[in-house]
């Protein structure tokens, strides 16, 4: 029995010859809060659709709860998974309470207590049709329907899309408490790096269909450092930095290096440059993200 709730091995998927996923590898441990980051079109939603069994991979394998995500096992996966779609579209002819009743009927572990709590917390009008809800309200209803399933795994595609800052904070607090109290695994995609930094314990940055950074957020923050070198005068020729210097940017006499390992060797190399003043800084998730997706 594997410890991973989600596993993707060399997942590839193309649309009309354009690669959306290009050998994606993922490992999501049970009970973790996993942030899935990437620019628009990086392949996040395609990966999520493959995990939910809506698409079939061209090659590679996606497994959820140890079962293949596509085919007959997807029903069992869906029974144990809460899902928020990217577009947040529900049945426009149903009311909020109609949607809750409808969804409830498919999930034996449905949590009436959570549904009631979120209905009040999100101030959702029970008798209003979903077509008449604002985008933010639809997002809140979608979250309610996903969380109240009593699921072991939540797959959330841009869950904060359309929510105001106060609602985002409420949502993040609830997700953290779900993960802590119930051991629910949460896999969510987002553009909002601040949100991810606030609740994720593991992240994956995906770019052009491949995972470019994966790991524990704390480890990544320790592992990555920014080294800033201010030189006496501009260098005549580019420096060949030691291994571990991921991205180097030079502007005049200032060289900024994002390093992922070998920090001490890198510092020594920088200090050996004539008249160099060297400093190191911790990095934010945003810096790691931007350096990786800009550089490619």
């Amino acid at each position: 029995m594997t410890d991973f709730v989600i596993e993707a091995n060399e997942l590839r998927k193309s649309y009309k010859g354009t690669a959306a996923l290009n050998g994606l590898n993922l490992r999501v441990r049970a009970g973790s809060v996993y942030g899935f980051l990437g620019r628009n079109g990086a392949g996040k939603t395609t990966a999520i659709k493959l995990l939910m069994g809506f698409l079939r991979a061209d090659s590679g394998e996606a497994r959820v709860f140890g079962m293949p995500s596509a085919g007959a096992t997807s029903i069992e996966i869906h029974r144990r998974t809460g899902f928020v779609t990217e577009d947040k579209q529900l049945y426009p002819y149903m009311t909020v309470e109609g949607m809750i009743r409808f969804t409830r009927s498919f999930f034996p572990k449905w949590r009436d207590d959570l549904a009631k709590r979120y209905l009040e917390m999100f101030e959702l009008p029970p008798r209003r049709k979903t077509a008449d809800l604002s985008k933010g309200m639809q997002s809140k209803l979608m979250l309610l329907l996903a969380i109240s399933r009593g699921a072991e795994l939540l797959i959330l595609d841009e869950p904060s899309d359309g929510l105001d800052p106060a609602a985002v904070q409420d949502m993040l607090r609830e997700l953290i408490s779900l993960a802590a109290a119930e051991g629910t695994t949460i896999f969510f995609s987002s553009h909002q790096l601040g949100e991810v930094e606030q609740i994720a314990d593991h992240i994956c940055i995906i770019d052009r269909g491949r995972a470019v950074v994966t790991g524990s957020l704390d480890d990544l923050k320790c592992q990555y450092q920014r080294v800033q070198v201010i030189l006496e005068r501009e260098l005549g020729a580019p420096v060949r930095w030691v291994e571990g210097a991921e991205y180097v940017r030079q502007e005049g006499r200032t060289v900024s290096i994002l390093a992922s390992r070998n920090i001490d060797a890198l510092l020594a190399q920088a200090e050996s440059l004539p008249g160099a003043s060297v400093e190191r800084f911790p990095v934010t998730l945003q810096e790691i993200f931007l350096e990786h997706v800009r550089a490619r």
Partner: peptide
Amino acid sequence: SASLAAVKGLHGSAYFTLSLPVS
């Protein structure tokens, strides 16, 4: 399907339906 959500009278709820534990 979501691609038809903009068409009058249609809605993009296919993914919600497909996420239910129903074949």
